[in-house]
Amino acid sequence: MMIFTLFLLLCIHCPVSMSVTVSASKSKVEVHEHTDAVLSCDFHTEKDQNPRIEWKKKGKAVSFVYFHNKFTSSYAGRAKMEGATLTIHSVTQKDSGEFRCEVTAGDDHVSFGEATVALHVHVPPHIPSCEVPRSVFVGSDLELLCKDQQSASPATYSWYKDNTALTVSSDTPYSMDTRKGTLKFASVSKVDSGMYRCETSDSVGAPKSCVAQQLKVIDHPAEISILIAGASAFVILAFLGAIFACVCRRRGFCTKEKKSKSLSCSSKSYNPPPPTIHNIKTYKATQSFMI
């Protein structure tokens, strides 16, 4: 009886530990781009009726979202507070990250509590970039590439040939990686020629596709040899023509001015030179004709 009485006296005189409690109903929030994101934060205090509420975002460094009862510049005008719950309007990919709700109750014995909410903003797919060569030889290996460079959301890639979706099975001559966007051929054949395009899709928006590109599988390497021979012959003929024109000009056969001078000389009439004084014979009278 004496021990129980002492225990009651100790409980009466010992201070009760009072603390603020903070919690989030959803620790992970996933929304689509340009919609609203609600980051919940619930708290309970024992004494302090006006605790200090702050929101911070963790990235490369910790930055303030809500501080001293107002939003920072990047969130001003597009966010609101209801109690300690934060709502961000028209979120973008830049808003993705880890947010932290902090509540400070100075009158409580344990005056600080926090809760963390991870926000992931799903971005619709963009038009992917496709790498398709114009021509390849029969029997060579080939890899077609497709990549959505702008989307941060995990995308699924699919390939089309002549507007028909390609599917992989045990007897298909190609393999496809729907996560990396690759289409690989171990050995291409003539039937693999066609128009190829890639399409990317995710759970956010409508699929996007690149412009179809023509792939030509060359049956015989001799076709390339013929093209190369024809181009080489054209270059040789052009070179010989340039040499001929240079020689012709140097010898004067191809100069219009020279030709016109020779024509003017041949058409000019001949005029004999005037007689000189020593060629004129003087007449000397030998007889007188007077009567």
Rank of each mutant, 00 (worst) to 15 (best):
V117H: 01
D192W: 02
V110G: 06
V121H: 01
K216C: 12
A165N: 14
F112I: 00
C101L: 07
D202P: 02
Q149C: 02
V168I: 14
F234H: 11
Y196D: 09
P154L: 07
S129A: 13
I228W: 09
T172D: 05
S232N: 15
I218F: 05
P173G: 02
P125R: 03
P221H: 15
I226S: 05
A152F: 01
L166E: 14
Q150D: 12
G194T: 12
W159Q: 01
K147M: 08
S153Q: 11
Y196V: 11
L183A: 05
V217N: 07
S175T: 14
I224P: 04
D171V: 15
K216R: 07
G194S: 12
V123A: 01
L144V: 06
Q214A: 12
C101V: 04
H109G: 00
F185D: 06
Q149W: 10
V121F: 03
S140H: 10
I127H: 05
G205P: 08
E223K: 14
T156Y: 03
A105M: 04
P173R: 08
T178N: 12
E199K: 13
S203R: 06
S225L: 15
F112N: 01
S169K: 05
E131Y: 09
P133G: 06
A105D: 03
D171R: 07
P221A: 14
P173D: 09
G181I: 02
C146E: 00
T200N: 01
Q149L: 09
S175D: 12
S158K: 08
K208T: 03
A206T: 13
S129L: 10
V168M: 10
A115P: 00
A115R: 00
V168F: 05
G230L: 12
S169M: 06
H126Y: 12
S232F: 15
F185A: 10
Y174D: 07
T116I: 07
H220L: 11
G194W: 13
G181K: 00
C146H: 04
S203D: 10
S135Y: 09
L227C: 10
V138P: 00
S140E: 15
T178V: 02
K216A: 14
S111D: 02
E143C: 05
P154F: 03
G181C: 11
I218V: 11
G230N: 14
L215S: 01
A229E: 05
F185W: 13
A206L: 11
A105T: 04
V217H: 08
C130S: 04
F234R: 06
I226R: 05
S135D: 11
K208R: 04
L145I: 05
D171M: 11
A222L: 15
